[in-house]
Amino acid sequence: MTGENKFFKYLKIVIGFLVAILFLLPIFILLMDSFKNQRGILTDVLGWPNPFIFDNYPKAMEKMNFFNSLWNSVWITVVSTALILLFSSMAAWVLVRYKTKISKVMFILFAVALLIPFQCVMLPLMSIMGSKEVFSITLGDATFALNGLNILNPFGLVFTYLGFGCSMAIMLYHGFIKGVPEELEEAAMIDGCSMFKTFWKIVFPLLSPINTTVAILQIMWIWNDYLLPSLVLKEQSWYTLPLQTSKFFSTFTSSWDIATAALILSMLPVVIFYLIAQKKIIKGVVDGAIK
C-alpha cells in the first residue's frame, strides 16, 4: 500500500470515530443530565453532574409505573409477533402451493394494502373496535344497525397488529416459500400426514431464516408503535412504554430531571436487545428492505 493510501485509510478511521461521537452525543448528554437535579439541569446542562443524584430513576419508575408498562410492552409485542409469524406463514404457504386464481387475487389484495397509510383507516377502525353503532341502514320499516366489536383493550390491540402486520409478513414468506422444494411436503402427505402436521413439522422448520427477518421487523415496529395503542388502550394500567412516556411528558412538561431519567429508562430495553442480537437485527433489516 502506498503512503498516500495509508494516509486516507487513517483519515477515514479518524473521521469515522468523530462522527460516532457526534451520533452518541445527544444520548450521552441526556444520560448525564438524568443524574442531575432540576436546578443542575437549568444552570449547567452540559457539565458533569454535580452533585451526582440517583433519585430521578426511582421517581421516574414510580411515576410512569415502569414495570407494569414494560410488562405490557413485552407481552403485547411477543404475542402479536408470534401470531403474525404463525398465521402469516400458514397463509403464505397455501397462497404459494395452491396455484389458483383466488390465490393470486388474495396475494395482490395483501400487497396493495401495504400502500394504505394508517391515518386513512384509523377513524373507521376505532368505531369498529368501539362499542357504539358503526352504521345503520333503513330498509322500509326495519332498521339494521351494526354495532362495534367492543375490543378497545390489549387483546383487541394484538388482533389489530395481526391485521396490519400480516401483509408485509405474507409478502416476505411468499418470496421465501417459492424457493422451497415441494417434494418433501408431498411425501409427508402421501404418508398420511395431515395438512397442519405437514406444515408444522416439515415446512415451518425450513422457514427459520425468514422467520428471524419477519420477527425482527415486527418487533421493532410493534415495540415502538405509539399512535395505534394510544387510540386502543383506554385504561392507564394497559399502557405500553411509549404511551406511558408520552403521558408522562404531557403531565410533567418542565420537570426535566425526572423526564430525562424516564427517557433513558424507556430506551434501555431496546439498547439491551440490540446489544444481544445486533447481527440478527441488522440482517433482518437488510433482508426486509431489499425484498
Binding site: L83, A91, M106, A113
Partner: peptide, 16 residues
Amino acid sequence: FLAPCLISFAIVVLIP
C-alpha cells in the same frame, strides 16, 4: 389456513 390473517386483515384494513 388463510382464515386467521384474512379475517383480521378484513376487519382491520379492508372494511375500514
